[in-house]
């Protein structure tokens, strides 16, 4: 397995301190691949991250369209394989209204499954060997991890100025 880089981890108590720091290091070349941790999905973080629309939407669209085609396709194919004469009309008319339900339900089903898959794929999950840098990130603290940085470096200074509660070294592992 590839070795994970070491670096510095800054821990923040306050949301606004975190977003200040995020905006400062966002485009710095010495902070590439930094990671931000948060216990929940504050919109302020999303704005500071400025990542653009998530590609999960393409998964949803693909799933939903596949579902529509599958649903209508299934119903029409069954109708073709065993024609059902309704009201004395010719077989092979393929009247759609009754099949809207099947098409609709499979649109939702496939769309939903692909959305969850998209979220997992884009979030690099499942990843059970992930290292947990600090257990408080799922509780009430925010954090920024800058790989390949040192406590005496420029990055640490910026993180400290923004109000970091604590900055510590993370060993390469």
């Amino acid at each position: 397995m590839r070795k994970r880089p070491g670096g510095i981890l800054a821990i923040y108590q306050y949301l606004d301190n975190l977003t200040d720091a995020m905006k400062l290091i966002r485009n710095r070349p010495d902070c590439v691949d930094h990671e931000v941790f948060s216990p929940t999905s504050y919109h302020e973080i999303e704005e500071a991250l400025d990542a653009g629309p998530s590609p999960v939407r393409w998964f949803t669209l693909f799933g939903a369209l596949t579902g529509s085609v599958t649903g209508f396709g299934l119903a029409l194919w069954l109708d073709y394989d065993w024609p059902m004469v309704v009201g004395g009309k010719l077989a092979g008319l393929y009247s759609l209204p009754a099949y809207v339900v099947i098409g609709f339900e499979l649109t939702i089903l496939f769309g939903g499954l692909m959305t969850v898959l998209g979220m997992l794929v884009m979030g690099r999950l499942p990843n059970l060997n992930q290292r947990i840098l600090d257990p408080r990130f799922t509780d009430d603290r925010f954090g920024i991890f800058v790989p390949n940085a040192t406590l005496s470096g420029e990055q640490a200074k910026i993180l400290q100025q923004c109000g970091a509660e604590e900055i510590r070294i993370i060993e390469s592992k």
Binding site: M22, E35, V36, F37, S38, P39, I45, E46, L49, A51, L120, M122, G123, L125, P126, N127, L128, N129, Q130, I132, L133, F137, T138
Partner: peptide, 8 residues
């Protein structure tokens, strides 16, 4: 699933 809570 090994959730870490990163901003991404």
């Amino acid at each position: 699933f090994g959730w870490r809570g990163t901003a991404k």
